[in-house]
Amino acid sequence: MLNWEDPLTTRPAAPAPSRAPQAEAADSRPETGADARPAPAAEPAHAIRPVNPDDKRVVNGLTDVNQLAPFKYPWAWNYFLNANKNHWTPLDINMASDVHDYFHKLTLEERHVYENVLAYLTTSDILAMRNIGLAVMEKMSAPELQIYQARQVYEEALHTWTYQHCIETIGLDQSEIYNRYRVVPEIHAKIRIANRRLDSVMRPDIDLRDRGELMNFLMAYIFFAAVFEGTWFYNGFTPVFALQRRGLMKGTAEQLQYIMRDEVMHASFGIRVAKQIMQEENIRPDPAAMREMWDEAEAAERAYAHYLLPDPILGYTAEMHSDQFRFIANRRAKQLGLEEPYPDAECAVEWLDEQANLRKEKNFFETRVTEYQTGGR
């Protein structure tokens, strides 16, 4: 028995209390009549059969979710291995120049952009964490999928810490910044859309064997993978990268560059899982529902862009932000094997992919090159 005062030692368990003879005699009598209870059934033979990986499924699987291998989805395990090649914390990045830039170099318009990007992202990454950790993982029936998603939950928490570190380092009013998603309609609209999708799959009575429920889950999964993380997030860091290209807020931009690469992998993994669900369950999103999803997301992003950039800052405009959303939306739809929502969209920020594609980074303390893998743009 564990000794809680000294966990490295044990103490003998107390002897079990003796029972009265009458109780023992009563226990020895066979049960008859209405009080009789059948003996426990023997464990069914199928409970001890080895797992056949071909029986694994993304959802509604038929195998033991506690048995990792043999893999049915080795690509999911590779995502986990690649994600673990990048270990960092926001404390690794020097933010001293950002403090000076914010107070002495940024214009009022640029401060507005910087603050509201952080205000949106702080809430969004918590939403992403809750979606994977509370709504998605427990529905996955193959452990190799859950293991990468467990890493994803950690990364979303790390991203939230990063935004908090930036806010705290600059000395922004935390209560005011964190409440903007409630009081700024253009930020609140995006959070409200995401919350609606999340709430629809967090119900305790959800049954994915029901085709209607399965379709709703698939649409929510696609929303978070392709829209929320794959497009809103991917596009959402761009205003700060525009400052970085002019030599401003370089510490924050470097933090976001690391985050962006995580988010690219999250979106890539989510799209891969969504396609696997479509294949295994013989189900496809309704084109009209996808059209509505993209248009709602595009309208929210356009309104957010015009709030963020009512006047252009040097090198970046609200029109560029909105145009890039449509271009990236087409990329995500194509990756899903679905119709592109904006076939005439063109790339408005040609340098954005550079932020996700750079393969080499300087080690901050040893000035050596380290490699970080990404899952695709």
Rank of each mutant, 00 (worst) to 15 (best):
R291C: 03
P90T: 09
L208R: 02
F224W: 07
D92L: 15
Y163A: 00
R196Y: 01
N52D: 15
F224D: 06
T89W: 00
A45Q: 13
H100M: 09
I206E: 01
D207E: 10
Q174D: 06
K139I: 08
Q146L: 09
D353R: 10
P287G: 03
T231K: 06
S124P: 07
A318C: 03
A297R: 05
Y79T: 01
A25N: 13
T122Y: 13
R180N: 05
L248G: 03
E280S: 15
Y79P: 00
M290P: 05
L358G: 05
G247S: 04
K334M: 12
D210I: 14
E280C: 15
L208M: 04
R49N: 00
P185H: 08
Q164T: 13
E110Y: 04
K85A: 05
N330T: 06
T367P: 02
P343R: 04
D353I: 08
E301K: 10
P17A: 05
Y102T: 02
F223G: 09
L243E: 03
A356P: 00
I259D: 01
D286Y: 13
M140G: 07
M293S: 13
I48K: 04
L91M: 07
P343Q: 09
I132W: 00
P90R: 02
A83W: 06
S124N: 11
Y181E: 00
L309S: 08
L338P: 02
R197W: 12
N179S: 15
Q22V: 15
N94F: 14
Y102Q: 01
A14V: 06
E371L: 14
A305R: 11
P310M: 08
R272T: 11
Q149H: 10
R331Y: 08
R284E: 10
V273P: 00
L309W: 09
A329K: 02
G230W: 08
L358H: 08
T160D: 05
D35M: 12
I147V: 15
L81A: 09
A297H: 03
R130W: 09
V65S: 08
L172I: 07
A13R: 00
F224V: 10
K85W: 02
R284C: 07
S28Y: 03
P341K: 06
Q279I: 13
S200W: 02
T32G: 05
H104E: 05
T374L: 13
P38E: 08
M129Y: 02
